[in-house]
Amino acid sequence: MATIKQIPLVALVLFAGACAGAPPASLVDARAAYQRASTGPAANLAPAQLHAAQTSLSVAEKTYEDEGASFNARDRAYVAQRKSELAEVQARISQATTRATDSAQRGALAEQKQHTETTNALTQTRAELATQIGALATETDRRKQAEQSEEQALARIGDVKQETRGTVLTLSGSVIFPSGGSELLPAARSRLSEVATALSQGEASSAIVVEGHTDSVGKPTNNQELSLRRATAVKNQLVSQGVAADRVSVMGFGDTRPVADNTSPAGRANNRRVEIVVQPKKD
């Protein structure tokens, strides 16, 4: 009977011995997994999942305490380990999401900055362009006014025409030169002074051509020389009155370019002339 009574006791001792032995590997792993998760970023980033892992580990520990390394205890430890690992993964997902959001914000900021820079540059370019357009309009107006005032001034002195070669002022040869001579008459000097003044007031960069013309009386070579001498005399007078010498060129056409019939005295008088051509500025 004593032996019989001892059997459950032995079983109990053996059972207790099993309990006191090393815990199963799954529980050891579960403890390590929780230890790692609870000291890592999961503590802040996945607290709910970490709490679930802790609860699960407690259940596994209790089961091990009650049942030893039973299937239940090992399965519960296994589950607890997965829950700790899940908490860690969720924390890492949270970190990656934050990185993505930060990068997106960084990109948006950079894009906004570039947009602002482009807008500013565009505004500046527009302003510069407007200034240039304004300056151009002012310059155009100024030239136009200069041309008009020049033309008006010349019109008071002689016959002014607008031709494709420019503004042409025709001075009658009989008024400015003695017959056959190339010395300016005193009256011509004052008239040419007015011409010089008008040209100086006008567009300073326009070129001036002084052309001499004669009637058909006399030898053509003589006429050509005479017309050149007269044109040169006019040029010299203009330059002496302040017109820049390099603006003025001279040409002698002799009787080659009549504007009227050479058979009548009136026609010949018209052909004896000096034309001052103000060429429009080329740009």
Binding site: R99, A100, G107, A110
Partner: peptide, 16 residues
């Protein structure tokens, strides 16, 4: 999530 983060980083860098 890692792939998205990497992509966003690359995009931001290319804008900068």
């Amino acid at each position: 999530a890692n792939a998205r983060a990497q992509k966003a980083d690359k995009a931001a860098t290319s804008i900068e």
